[in-house]
Amino acid sequence: MLLCLLGLVGCAGQQMSDAPGATSSGKASYYSDRHQGARTASGERYDKNAMTAAHRTLAFGTRVRVTNLDNQRQAVVRINDRGPFSRGRVIDLSRAAAGQIGMIKSGVVPVRLEVLK
Rank of each mutant, 00 (worst) to 15 (best):
L5R: 09
L6N: 14
L6T: 13
L6M: 14
G7R: 09
L8H: 10
V9Q: 14
V9R: 13
G10T: 08
C11S: 05
C11A: 11
A12M: 14
G13V: 09
Q14V: 02
Q14Y: 10
Q14S: 04
Q15A: 07
M16K: 03
S17H: 04
S17A: 05
S17R: 04
D18A: 10
D18Y: 05
G21R: 03
G21T: 06
A22Q: 02
T23W: 00
T23R: 02
S24I: 00
S25A: 05
S25T: 01
G26E: 01
G26I: 03
K27V: 07
K27M: 09
K27H: 03
K27C: 00
A28G: 05
A28V: 02
S29V: 03
S29H: 05
S29E: 01
S29N: 03
Y30M: 11
Y31C: 08
Y31K: 04
S32A: 15
S32N: 11
S32G: 15
R34F: 14
R34E: 15
R34L: 08
H35V: 10
H35Q: 06
H35L: 14
Q36C: 07
Q36M: 05
Q36G: 05
G37S: 10
G37N: 13
G37H: 12
A38S: 11
A38Y: 15
A38M: 14
R39H: 13
R39G: 05
T40A: 13
T40P: 12
A41Q: 09
S42I: 07
E44C: 13
E44D: 15
R45N: 12
R45S: 15
Y46Q: 07
D47W: 12
A50P: 03
A50I: 08
A50S: 14
A50D: 14
M51W: 06
M51V: 12
T52P: 13
T52N: 09
A53P: 06
A53G: 14
A54Q: 10
H55E: 06
H55I: 03
H55K: 03
R56L: 07
R56Q: 13
T57Q: 08
T57W: 12
T57Y: 15
L58K: 07
L58Q: 09
L58C: 06
A59K: 15
F60V: 11
G61Y: 07
G61S: 08
G61C: 08
G61K: 10
T62Y: 11
R63S: 07
R63N: 04
V64K: 12
V64W: 12
V64F: 11
V64G: 09
R65I: 05
R65N: 09
R65L: 07
V66R: 02
V66A: 01
V66P: 13
T67I: 09
N68L: 09
N68D: 13
D70H: 01
N71I: 05
N71F: 06
Q72G: 06
Q72N: 15
Q74V: 09
A75N: 01
A75V: 13
V77D: 00
V77N: 01
R78L: 01
R78H: 04
R78E: 09
I79Y: 05
I79P: 06
I79E: 08
N80I: 08
D81L: 10
D81P: 11
R82W: 07
R82C: 10
R82S: 06
P84N: 01
F85Y: 11
F85I: 03
S86P: 00
S86C: 01
S86E: 03
S86F: 01
R87F: 02
G88D: 00
G88M: 04
R89Q: 02
R89Y: 00
